[in-house]
Amino acid sequence: MVTSSFDYFAPTTLDEATSLLSRYRGEAKVLAGGHSLIPMMKLRLAEPGILVDIGQIDGLSYIREDGDGVSIGSMTTYREMATSSVIQSRYPLLADASSKVADLQVRNRGTIGGSLAHSDPAGDIPAVVLAIGGSVVARTRRSSREIAIDRFQVDLLTTALHDNEIITEIKLPSLAAGTGTAYSKFHNPASHYAITGVAAVVTISGGVCTEARVAVTGAGDKATRARRTERILRGKELTPAVIRRAAERAAAEVEDTLNEDIHATAEYRVHMTQVHAVKAIEAAVAAAG
């Protein structure tokens, strides 16, 4: 399969890259690892006239402990996150989810920034970052802004990014003591995309859940917080009965945009979301100690 023709730029600095995006605003797409964009271009679902490859820019691939939290450069690959001792110890669900994206070859190329910017409805990373919280740093030629992750995913394959912005960094907050995390997904055996996936970050203090962030992917049009589930968890002792009752509401926020395709019906996706919500929350509670 051959993509449409395009003009190609491989800038070596962010200033050059953002200048190109401004100059060709609306026509140009950013090429990061390419493992979402190139397949879409081969299917002619995307036909950008210009690609700005940010793979030649130094300094966009790092995992750094900054103050309280951790900053991840946008070109950091799944493999780098899966094997990072910082990610493994501070955000185990991000390391685990990264190790389960697609396969070894894809994990060598795909990036956290690309995954977030693409916002695939079945992507793993958008749900995981949503459950952790934090923000996306986006830069234009003239300025830089931080977009809270809760406002980042807007719609199917659509984010709050402007078409002259490049994601440079993802900032993750420090997790409170007593926080456990887990990601549980039911994947398509060929592509390893999530038919449904649930990310849970749960804080337990004095035997009671003081904070919970739960995010669902695969079921609806974008990664979405399961706020009803979170509300049931907060303030309670997380017994199996409470977890089950909370998980029953895990697909409530996506029920208007449920996916239905050759892989699973909408009804099945709802059920599997509930099943994996139980698994993710139970594992997060166990990890909270």
């Binding site: 190609y8 390419g34 190139i38 397949p39 490859d53 894809v106 190329r109």
Partner: peptide, 14 residues
């Protein structure tokens, strides 16, 4: 690193 060469443009390998 192992990659799928059907999902990399030749120009990216420059």
């Amino acid at each position: 690193e192992a990659v799928k060469s059907c999902t990399v443009f030749a120009v990216q390998a420059n």
